[in-house]
Nucleic acid binder design. Structure first.
Length: 801
DNA sequence: TTAGCCTTGAGC
DNA sequence: GCTCAAGGCTAA
């Protein structure tokens, strides 16, 4: 029996949609209007919101007044798009949280996370929630309708605590060479970049009826509505929504430039909202679930029926991300290729959050070269391979074993979860989750899997209990998400909608919690409209691939790390020298950790691991609002031009510079953000048009941080430098923030696998057993790459090498 | 309302 | 038959 899903595609706007729950306390509330004609978000007192709904003229009048009031304001962050399907004569009204009137630090652990808080003029950096704008893609076939789908912005919860950052700054001064950056890197307690969701408008769509069961359980709740448009209210009092021009819609770079302006804040306003009177009879008004990317491409289309739902979120972009990742995985698998580098063992990081399911994979895909492919194919182990070597997919078996008797030994002793669960730091050596160098006769290299139980919920940091609604979450967030969606609950944040959500505070602000759920990738459509129990849904294959992907990524990274270890010698690198004491993890904890903690981020062309890291953001490499690379320029010779700074968000974030010193930035080349324009049923992907990337790359100046620049400049190997440049160019085009360590790992991986591939096919090695081959190879590699490793560790603030 | 545990059932 | 991600139940 097909499962039924909530369909977010077809929404109807009705007065009831705009009914909202008022805050429990008496506070000032405002209403955000999105005037699709004027491309503005306006805020008026909420008391008029309903009136506006029934009296458009009144609303229009108010809008005009508001516009007059705010016209003097410089255009702030421009992010969102309306849906072309929406009758633009309709003004959409939402009731955001009350405007703060008093100052109350609410994210430092006090018990009231929703106290009214004043809005700072320039919100400080928060590493709790970072708005990441998704990257658009250059697809000339994208229709306007597709392009006017929700703006694709994301929040990533990188979960670097303030203490983390402080520790990093202390122990890795090289990462914080700029005093300004250091200053910015230490966010004031209680600060937080708000999170805002882009939303879209939908028209009510005629429903398709589907036969289904369990209709008796439908909850026909016409009163409770989730006004996710609450989320769209910018932190700034006078945010302006701008419907991006057609030009910007079709050109991600121009879209970017249209979205950035001098008043960029860590929080952006959202776009249009959708409403649904929800007067639908669920039994009759079934809707065909929107065709997801996976449905179209991967043939996973379920004949799901859905009911309309009053809130529209950016879930489809998350779908797109995941699905794209799936596609990428599929393509890679079909090509016999895999990925280089990849994730590290998550359980190394006791405090890490859950892993992005596909993030690293994408980066690996970007890294892949032909020379890697053959090697990848040899390393591309499927689940059966892993199990053959003693690995078990603990996501499914919850059994963690080291294979082949290597590592820490025993059936469970070597997995990192054991060390993690014991409260102590992970073991060093082969049992610490890195590659187990035990080369069995089969040629497989034993790896130690990342236990699901060791991962943390990306929403609250609690223990993950499994895949729930699209990603690994804890049981409580699963239930919370389910209750919210099923019951169409309306939440209101009485603070700034950027409440910190963790295990201890997750109850305090359901609005922000749900917001976070959405932004980390929980999928609304995974909640069954018909409440049917049991069974599987369409995400099953995605979960499966995600697991396999993680295993593969982890494995490849471990191989690379093992190469480093073999080359340099593990005795020379002590974990304590490589990571903050607070984590006691080997290798570059900072980057690995951040990489792990960044949850699913939607992307079509960018790799998920391209999400800006907190370090990078703090370093000014990216604009957390826009995923933009701070527009320093790197030429092929490593030249940098840092132009004048302005009061852009980048500058406010300690950015190195901007591309314009006139204070009137257009960010013409700072093409970090564009809206990922999709619609539920018409998702446009450009995976088949690599030329567009190449074309743009050739004309696009390279923008990287000074640290990256220095790194590249330091390399004396021209070939290697060229490779780096190529990578930077690709990532720059793809709006990918270039993380230093990630970059180094990628290059290292690329070189490693290239050399492995080369060596494997040489007359000297090809007849050797795999195990023997690796031993000899790594010895050779150590000689060849020695200097490069030194460079890497030098830049990784490892001074003892 | 939350969150831990239980039941269910499609997919393998 | 097993897995596991859905929804349901219920004590707190």
């Amino acid at each position: 029996m097909p499962l039924n899903y909530i369909n977010f595609e077809h929404l109807q706007l009705s007065p009831s949609t705009f009914t909202t729950m008022r805050p429990s306390h008496d506070s000032v509330s405002t209403t955000t209007h999105i005037d699709m004609d004027q491309s503005r978000i306006l805020e008026v007192p909420s008391s008029s919101s309903i009136l506006n709904q029934y009296h458009p003229q009144h609303q229009q009048s108010q809008q005009q007044q508001q516009q007059q009031q705010i016209h003097h304001q410089p255009l702030p962050s421009i992010i969102n798009l309306g849906n072309s399907n929406v009758n633009r004569s309709n003004s959409i009204t939402s009731t955001p949280s009350p405007q703060p009137t008093t100052n109350n630090n609410n994210s430092s652990g006090n018990n009231n996370n929703c106290n009214v808080t004043s809005l700072p003029q320039s919100p400080p950096i928060s590493f709790q929630n970072i708005v990441v704008n998704d990257i658009s893609f250059n697809n000339p076939t994208t229709t306007e309708q597709q392009l006017t789908s929700p703006g694709h912005r994301f929040l990533i919860n990188n979960r670097l605590s303030h203490n983390d950052i402080a520790a990093i700054a202390t122990q890795h001064p090289n990462l914080f060479r700029s005093q300004q950056i250091q200053k910015e890197m230490l966010p004031p307690i209680g600060s937080g970049s708000g999170l805002e969701l882009s939303e879209m408008q939908h028209q009510h769509h005629h429903h398709q009826s589907h036969n289904h069961h369990h209709q008796q359980n439908h909850q026909k709740n016409n009163d409770l509505k989730i006004l996710q448009n609450d989320m769209i209210k910018p932190a700034n009092h006078h945010q302006v929504l701008q419907i991006t021009s057609d030009e910007s819609l079709t050109d991600p770079k121009k879209a970017l430039s249209s979205q950035m302006n001098d008043n960029c804040q860590p929080v952006f306003g959202g776009g249009g909202i959708s409403g649904n009177g929800n007067g639908n009879d669920d039994s009759d008004e079934r809707k065909k679930m929107s065709t997801s990317f996976e449905d179209n491409i991967l043939g996973l289309n379920d004949s799901a029926s859905c009911f309309s739902y009053p809130y529209i979120l950016d879930n489809e972009m998350i779908d797109a991300d995941t699905d794209t990742a799936d596609l990428a995985a599929t393509i890679a698998e079909n090509n016999g290729g895999g990925a280089s580098g990849g994730d590290c063992n998550k359980s190394l990081l006791e405090n890490s959050a859950s892993t992005s399911s596909s993030r690293n994979y994408h980066s690996l895909q970007n890294m892949r070269t032909d020379s890697i492919s053959s090697m990848d194919s040899s390393l591309d182990l499927d689940k059966s391979d892993l199990e053959k070597e003693g690995y078990q997919d603990n996501a499914s078996s919850h059994s963690h074993q080291s294979g082949s008797g290597g590592g820490g030994g025993g059936s469970n002793g070597s997995n990192l979860n054991s060390s993690s669960s014991s409260g102590g730091p992970p073991n060093n050596g082969s049992s610490n989750g890195m590659l187990n160098a035990n080369n069995s006769n089969s040629g497989y290299i034993t790896l130690i899997p990342p236990p699901v139980g060791g991962e943390l919920c990306p929403v609250c940091g609690d223990k993950v209990s499994g895949y729930h609604y699209g990603l690994l979450t804890c049981e409580s967030c699963k239930g919370f998400f389910k209750r919210t969606v099923q019951n169409k609950k309306v939440y209101t944040c009485v603070a700034e909608r950027n409440c910190h959500i963790d295990k201890t505070q997750r109850k305090r602000c359901p609005f922000c919690r749900f917001n976070k759920c959405i932004n980390v990738g929980m999928k609304l459509e995974a909640v069954r409209e018909d409440r049917m129990r049991g069974g599987r849904n369409k995400f099953g294959p995605m979960y499966k691939r995600d697991r396999a992907r993680k295993l593969q990524i982890m494995r490849q990274r471990q191989i690379a790390l093992q190469a480093i270890r073999t080359t340099i010698g593990s005795a020379d690198i002590k974990p304590g020298q490589l990571s903050p004491n607070s984590y006691q993890t080997p290798y570059n904890t900072i980057n690995i950790k951040q990489e792990i903690q960044i949850p699913q981020v939607s992307s079509l062309t960018q790799s998920p691991d391209s999400s800006p890291s907190p370090i990078a953001i703090a370093l000014g490499q990216v604009n957390p609002n826009t995923t933009s690379v701070i527009p320093t320029s790197l030429t092929g010779n490593g030249g940098v031009s840092t132009m004048g700074t302005t009061n852009t968000s980048a500058a406010s974030l300690g950015g190195i510079g901007s591309n314009s010193g006139n204070g009137n930035n257009t960010y013409e080349h700072d093409s970090s953000v564009s809206l990922q324009h999709t619609s539920n049923s018409k998702i446009c992907y450009d995976n088949t048009n690599p030329s567009s990337t190449a074309d743009s790359m050739s004309s696009e100046p390279l923008r990287v941080s000074p640290m990256i620049r220095d790194f590249v400049q330091t390399i004396d190997d021209r070939e290697w430098q060229a490779q780096l440049f190529d990578l930077l160019q690709k990532q720059s085009y793809n709006q990918v923030e270039v993380d230093l360590f990630e970059l180094m790992c990628k290059v290292l991986d690329q070189n490693l696998f290239s050399q492995v591939d080369w060596a494997r096919n040489t007359v000297f090695f090809k007849d050797l057993k795999v195990s023997t081959f690796f031993v000899l190879f790594f010895l050779t590699l150590g000689y060849t790459f020695g200097s490069k490793f030194l460079i890497i560790f030098k830049f990784g603030s490892v001074t003892s090498v």
